[in-house]
Design a protein around this nucleic acid. Structure first.
Length: 461
DNA sequence: CATATTACTTCA
DNA sequence: TGAAGTAA
């Protein structure tokens, strides 16, 4: 739970940029025939037409939902174009979407601190850029205001939703009597509109954005007017906005905490939270979460935009339907190898592109739940250090399935990471490694191949 | 029978 | 520090 640093007068300018049905846009750029047509992206076509993971706006108009199967989508929208996610090594391969996401990040990072929040979302801290703009070009004197920024939705502006919205947005942007924070928001909106146009010019992708004084409100706003639009949250609009907002719509409150607020405290909207003292909330949920909730009710959020353009981790996984799907050790090893090879390829390109090297590896089995059949209820995971330790990784012999015939459980041993990998790193990082490694005892370094799987030597127990 | 990731927190 | 919980 993020701890909100109470910030009495938070005049930061924060934007949240969200790509519109991103996977669909990537596929439409690849195949322009699909532009303007109802389109969705599916994976695994064989069972009920595959699962939808992205739905274009034309298809949404016909009632297609993300929760649907391909077959179901065809029923409500017979003309829909279903594009399959690329498959490599027998599993979905999201590489093209990751690469497209990076294209967008590199553009959005030009005007301020940028945080890659997911494959298709970023936060921007535009405070400095907005302040600079306000100093150098007073808004009242702006001759030509960008077409795009005039299409902004300004929360709390009475004309929002009317015909002549553009002229009232222009009026709002240039108001002489506007307070300083509103002027900064206006500058933020101009910058974001420019960035969104640059994204469109350079990548052909549209996106939506929210501009506010903190991350929480910016995120809320980016989803309010989609696709290809932006929404500005003025301080004056916050109270009304949160008053009727269902708690479940708020980031972090979509899960168990949100449910607990409803059932245990009778809190249904964020506004309902205002009735509770900070102390009361802390008693119920602990100091951190309690304070965070108290601030959230007031539209206060101190979370900083982390300057981070790259993901912190890489993962590769596949779902196997039912406990019967993976019934032999050979099958488990086969799929483990496929997953390792994908991971290896991605770590390799991360090393080349970003000079980064992985130092921990986690193997994880997710829960499998079925009402009638046997279930594997809880997650199991095993984490190892790739750098120093000799450890054993053997979590799966019983847990993958009761049907795995393993009287002799199998395990993997990890040695030190291959020296040749370290040698490819920049000199200063190599130096760092040597200092880390010196006090450790060095196990014999055996020559290994390029696959992560090669870092594990299968042994019998 | 069926998504694939990613990030962050909590607890021992 | 590793395993599990929560959330998106």
């Amino acid at each position: 739970m993020p701890v909100s640093r109470p910030e009495s007068s938070d005049s930061r300018i924060i934007a949240h940029v969200d790509m519109d049905c991103f996977y669909v846009q990537v596929e439409q750029r690849k195949n322009p025939d699909l532009r303007g047509k109802p389109t969705a992206v599916v994976q695994y076509n064989s069972w009920k037409g595959g699962g939808l993971i992205a739905v274009g706006y034309e298809a949404r108009k016909d009632g297609v939902k993300r929760s649907m199967r391909g077959d179901e989508a065809k029923e409500v929208c017979p003309g829909i174009h279903l594009v399959q996610v690329p498959v490599a090594r027998g599993k979905a391969d999201l590489t093209i979407y990751r690469v497209a996401g990076s294209e967008v990040v590199s553009i959005l990072a030009r005007k301020g601190r940028c945080e890659r929040a997911s494959i298709d979302e970023v936060y921007l801290d535009l405070t400095d850029a907005a302040e600079t703009m306000l100093k150098e070009t007073p808004l009242e004197s702006l001759e030509s205001i960008d077409e795009e920024v005039l299409k902004s939705h300004v929360l709390g502006l009475s004309s929002d939703g009317k015909d002549d919205r553009e002229s009232s947005v222009r009026e709002w942007l240039q108001r002489k009597d506007a307070d300083h924070r509103d002027k900064l928001l206006a500058c933020g909106a101009i910058i974001v509109a420019e960035l969104r146009l640059q994204v469109l010019r350079e990548t052909e992708f549209t996106c939506s954005a929210g501009v506010a004084h903190n991350k929480m409100l910016a995120k809320l706003a980016s989803g309010m007017n989609k696709p290809a639009q932006q929404t500005i949250v003025t301080s004056a609009s916050v109270k009304e906005l949160l008053e009727t907002l269902p708690v479940k719509k708020m980031k972090q409150l979509g899960g168990k905490l949100g449910s607990s607020l409803q059932t245990d405290l009778g809190v249904n909207t964020v506004g309902d939270l205002l009735q509770f003292s900070e102390e009361k909330l802390q008693d119920f949920y602990g100091v951190n979460t309690g304070t965070w909730l108290w601030n959230t009710a007031r539209g206060i959020n101190g979370d900083e935009v982390q300057g981070r353009l790259l993901p912190k981790s890489h993962g590769s996984g596949k779902t196997f339907p039912g406990v019967r799907a993976l019934k032999t050790v050979a099958a488990v090893e086969k799929w483990l190898k496929e997953l390792c090879e994908e991971l290896n390829e991605r770590l390799q390109s991360d090393l080349e592109k970003n000079k980064r090297i992985a130092h921990t590896l986690t193997l994880e089995r997710l829960p499998y739940c079925d009402f009638s059949k046997a279930t594997l209820p809880h997650r199991q995971s095993k984490t190892i250090s790739l750098l120093f330790k000799k450890q054993t990784l053997c979590p799966w012999s019983q847990s993958l399935s009761q049907n795995v015939q393993t009287t002799n459980a199998w395990s993997y041993k990890v040695d030190e990471i291959d020296q040749s990998v370290i040698e490819e790193l920049p000199l200063e990082i190599q130096q760092e490694f040597r200092t880390w490694l010196r006090p450790q005892k060095r196990p014999n370094i055996m020559k290994r191949g390029s696959s992560i799987a090669d870092y594990f030597s299968p042994t019998k127990n």
